[in-house]
Each structure stands twice: as structure tokens, then as C-alpha cells.
Design a binder for these strands. Structure first.
Length: 486
RNA sequence: GGUGCCUUGGCCGAGUGGUUAGGCAGAGGUCUGCAAAACCUCCUACAUUGGUUCGAAUCCGAUAGGCACCUCCA
């Protein structure tokens, strides 16, 4: 099926088709690993995951998916510095080598990050590469040399900056974000600049070495500028080295539109003369209870925080996938609860498909259903509409009356659908292995007899007793079930 | 100050000029000693305001409110 995506470059839908005629090459801005990722980060990664899955399953494409890890920036340097309060025992001993500390620190959080996204059912096998900035220092330096030689960068006090005003003579700066240069960075903000930039809009390609910080040797045009890479250049280089330019799709949070992605475009064109990607996709932000997530408001959650509150990561996945990536998602506990129930409703339907004992006369047009659902997904990942089709279908059919042949087709449809959503179990309903203590079983049996004899008061008393012990009884037509209280 | 986005029923969330999105919650019903579960039915909105139109949640203008980016925050 043809896939269309909202392209931030044009503001319109773009038809996705592999530039090289074979595979879709996709780059996603990944995390800066200086702490546990929060659920806002998670939304971005879940969006990228959804996109690559839709490309594979609905678009039938091969996908090379790359997500970078930013392991060197102000925050990772700050928090890994010798004597930092952010250092944890599990990271090992701190040494007097700043680079070693940085790598220990960031690999700790990288590992935690990978664990977290795995819980959200992002499959690490789907990545082609998960590159780290520090593994590309030489290539970064090489790219900076190129930009410099092209007259679009300058040296200043040990750092190297991209020259935006020079660049604007050659090309547009502001492809993703319309900039009013007259009003760019108004008033008081300019004075916060710590670096010797020629102009406020210029950004660092390379930052000079500071005492106690990790650095790499670098010489530019005869001038020593030992230091470390700027943030924007990392992505430009990794995507070029791994995917080649231009590639097909670049994803990221909407906050990265400017300056990060704008600068990526400028750098790639300035160094190689190539626009990095055909389609830019940005996901909107996440709010918590209608407010921006922030530590001061006390609504800042990592995945780990939510797990401690008893929330299943799969429900977070479902909740986030059920909203459109282009709109602000309001995370609420109420909403997660609703999402869970909605998810389980479909799960129950799927379980019923595995009941091959009962069969009815109803034939299902599974192809039509599949077509409806996939058409919505192909149209800019419209998951809310896709799920609405599923619910309408599920609500209008009694699984007991479906013909066996249709059940089988439905099953394979849900298998396919789950390759995208991955929030359901495609299997028989698991037999609940209950370890119910003997005395509870006895009590339950006793209660059942009392009930049959219509001694309800006594029966209820026993039920209360069983309930207090942690079990709940549900009467069925001629029998009863015991379950552990959840 | 600049740029862009948003405002839909109790809550979440679709809608891209003319027909019920969907979910959760709630109400009624079937079932049931009661309860639970399951199933059926129901609830029907579009920030305010002016305009365009035979017709607007949907297009245009204004107002109010919210959000984001311009500050290496996904």
C-alpha cells in the first residue's frame, strides 16, 4: 500500500518511495543519555517505531532504521565529571580520565534506555544501527574541515562556528522554521552567549577544550582547537556515514525542528552539497494532566516511575499509539486506565478467535476490514481511525457466530496488525494457573453448597471471608470461579 | 517581539463543506438470591463572535484562552 506522511519541509503529505528504489532509509534522533528517559522521550521513540513498522507491514518496504545515542554534550559532561553527585555506584569507579568517566556514565544510561524501550515493545532487532556520537569523532572533524574549506565556518577562541550569514547568501536558512532575522533572538537573550560568536544565530560545530572535560585533538587550518563536537554536527555525520545522503525519512520531536534539524540541513549542504533527507517528520509533545511535564510541577515521570505505580508499559504503548503523533498528547492516569480497558477489549476478541469449538454461520469480509484499517495507517499513521475501524468491527459481531474459516482469516489479520501495534497476545487465552490454598477451596465449596440450599446469608459470610483472604468468587450458571484479587 | 500549532459531549480522542467516528465513565436492560462478568440499548458536543455559502465543527476575519519553538528540552 502507498504510504503518505506529513512532511515538515512542505507542510503537506509526501508520498514515501525509496530514493534508491530498494529500501527506506530512516534516521531518528535518539536520546541524550544523561538520565533515565521520561515518557515524553518515549513518545518520540514510539512514534518512530510505529512509523518504521507501518513502512514494513503496510508499505511492504525494507527499512534501515538508525537511531543515534548522544553521549557527549553539556549535560553528559557535567554529570559525569569527577565528583559529580549524579554518579552512581553501578557505573563503577571514577577515574581521572574525563573521557573514561563520560563513557562509563553514558553507557550506563544507554543500557537503561535500551531496557526501557524494550519494555515498550520496541524491538532492538528492528534497528540497523544505534550509533554513538563518540564513535564518529574523526568523521565529524573531517566534515568540519569541509565546511571550513567551503568558507562557511570560522575559527574563534578555540571553537569552530557555522557562519549563518555567509550561508544565507547561498541557500535558505529556515527551511523547517520560518525565521524573522530582524527579530531573531530579541533583546536580553543575546547577552547570555558565552562564546565568541560573530553573530547570535551562529552555532558551534566544535567546542574548545575546557579543563576537566573530555576532548579530542583537532587542528583546523593550522590552528589548534582541541575540544569536542557540537551537538548538531553529530547527527549530520552519523546519518551520512551510515545511511548515505540523501536518505528517505528523518524523525524527531517537534522541539528539534529548530535549531537542531535546521542546522543539520545547513551543515549537510554546506559540507556535501546535499539536502540530508526527503521527508522530515516531527511528533508533537506530550503533556501531563494538561500541563507541560516538569520536575517543579511534580508531573515528571520516567517509565520506571510509572511501573512503580503499577502501570503496564504495554498500556503506555497502546495509549500513545492510539493518539495521532501530530497532536499534543495529554497523558493522564485516567487515560491510561481507559487505554488499558480498550486494549483488553480487543484482546478478548482475539482470544475468542482461538476458540475453535464454537462456530456459526457468519462469514467475515476480512479483506475489507484489513483494507480499511491499513488505509488509515498508510495515511500519515492515522491510528485513531484505524482503531475505530477495529472497534466498530468488534462491537458488531459476536465471535461465537463466526464461521471457522473466517476466524482463521481474522486471526492472520490480527497477527499482521500486531506486527505494528504489538500490544496483544495472539494465542489461546492462557489457563490461569491459580495456586489457591486448600482451605480456600474448601470454603468455596462450602459456600457453593450453602448457596444451593439458598442459605444466602451464610454463603455471603463465607464469600466475605474468602475475599478477605485475597480471592474473589464469581458465580457462573451452574458453577463458580475463584480468582485472585488483582 | 517573531514563528507555528491548538480549543470537540463528564474524561480521552477522530472529523480536512452536506451522512452515527471510536474508547473510557455514566444510565437503562438481559442474566442473577445478591454481586461480578458478559452482552444489548441510550446519552450527542464542536471556545466566543462576525462573515462566505443553499449548507460550516470543517473556509475567512476578529476576540478570548492554551501550547510550542526562537534558550544544545523528545
Amino acid at each position: 500500500m502507498e504510504i503518505y506522511l506529513h512532511n515538515s519541509l512542505t507542510g503537506k503529505l509526501s508520498h514515501v518511495t525509496p530514493l534508491d528504489g530498494k529500501v527506506i532509509r530512516m534516521y531518528s534522533c535518539g536520546p541524550t543519555v544523561y538520565n533515565y528517559a521520561h515518557i515524553g522521550n518515549m513518545r518520540s521513540f514510539l512514534f518512530a517505531d510505529l512509523l518504521q513498522r507501518v513502512l514494513r507491514v503496510v508499505g511492504n518496504f525494507k527499512v534501515l532504521w538508525v537511531m543515534n545515542i548522544t553521549n557527549i554534550d553539556d549535560k553528559t559532561i557535567r554529570d559525569s565529571a569527577f565528583g559529580s553527585n549524579e554518579w552512581k555506584e553501578e557505573m563503577g569507579e571514577q577515574s581521572n580520565d574525563p573521557l573514561e568517566n563520560l563513557l562509563k556514565f553514558t553507557s550506563f544510561y544507554e543500557q537503561k534506555f535500551l531496557e526501557d524501550i524494550t519494555k515498550l515493545k520496541i524491538n532492538l532487532k528492528h534497528f540497523y544501527r544505534i550509533p554513538k556520537a563518540t564513535d564518529f569523532i574523526l568523521q565529524i572533524q573531517d566534515t568540519i574541515q569541509k565546511i571550513y574549506k567551503n568558507g562557511l565556518a570560522y575559527y574563534s577562541a578555540g571553537s569552530v562556528y557555522f557562519n549563518v550569514s555567509e550561508w544565507r547568501k547561498k541557500d535558505i536558512y529556515g527551511k523547517l522554521f520560518k525565521i524573522d532575522f530582524e527579530n531573531f533572538r530579541s533583546g536580553e537573550r543575546i547577552e547570555s552567549d558565552q562564546y565568541e560568536k560573530e553573530q547570535a544565530a551562529d552555532f558551534a560545530l566544535w567546542k574548545s577544550r575546557k579543563p576537566g572535560e573530555p576532548y579530542w585533538e583537532f587542528e583546523l587550518d593550522g590552528q589548534r582547537c582541541d575540544g569536542r563536537p557540537g551537538w548538531h554536527i553529530e547527527c549530520s555525520v552519523m546519518e551520512k556515514e551510515i545511511l548515505g545522503l540523501p536518505f528517505d525519512i528523518h524523525t524527531g520531536g517537534i522541539d528539534l525542528k529548530f535549531p537542531h534539524h535546521e542546522d543539520e540541513i545547513a551543515q549537510s549542504k554546506a559540507a556535501y552539497g546535499i539536502d540530508p533527507t526527503a521527508v522530515w517528520c516531527h511528533n508533537e509533545f506530550l503533556e501531563v494532566e494538561g500541563q507541560k511535564m516538569s520536575k517543579s510541577l511534580g508531573n515528571f515521570f520516567t517509565l520506571r516511575d510509572l511501573e512503580k505505580k503499577g502501570i503496564d508499559p504495554v498500556d503506555i504503548r497502546y495509549a500513545m499509539l492510539s493518539a495521532h503523533y501530530g497532536s499534543v498528547y495529554n497523558f493522564t492516569f485516567n487515560g491510561i486506565n481507559a487505554a488499558r480497558k480498550a486494549r483488553l477489549r480487543i484482546q478478548d476478541f482475539i482470544y475468542s478467535l482461538f476458540d475453535e469449538e464454537t462456530e456459526g454461520p457468519d462469514k467475515i469480509d476480512v479483506d475489507a476490514l484489513r483494507n480499511n484499517v491499513f488505509t488509515e495507517l498508510a495515511n500519515d499513521l492515522h491510528t485513531p481511525k484505524a482503531l475505530a475501524h477495529i472497534f466498530t468491527f468488534v462491537n458488531n459481531i459476536n465471535p461465537k457466530t463466526i464461521k471457522l474459516s473466517s476466524k482463521k482469516k481474522l486471526k492472520s489479520f490480527f497477527v499482521e496488525l500486531n506486527k505494528i501495534f504489538e500490544v496483544w497476545t495472539l494465542d489461546q487465552k492462557p489457563e490461569e494457573k491459580l495456586t489457591i490454598p486448600e482451605h480456600i477451596l474448601k470454603l468455596a465449596e462450602e459456600r457453593f453448597h450453602l448457596k444451593k440450599e439458598k442459605k444466602f446469608e451464610l454463603a455471603d459470610k463465607l464469600r466475605k471471608e474468602i475475599y478477605d483472604a485475597g480471592f474473589v468468587i464469581k458465580d457462573t450458571k451452574d458453577n463458580y470461579e475463584i480468582n485472585r484479587i488483582e
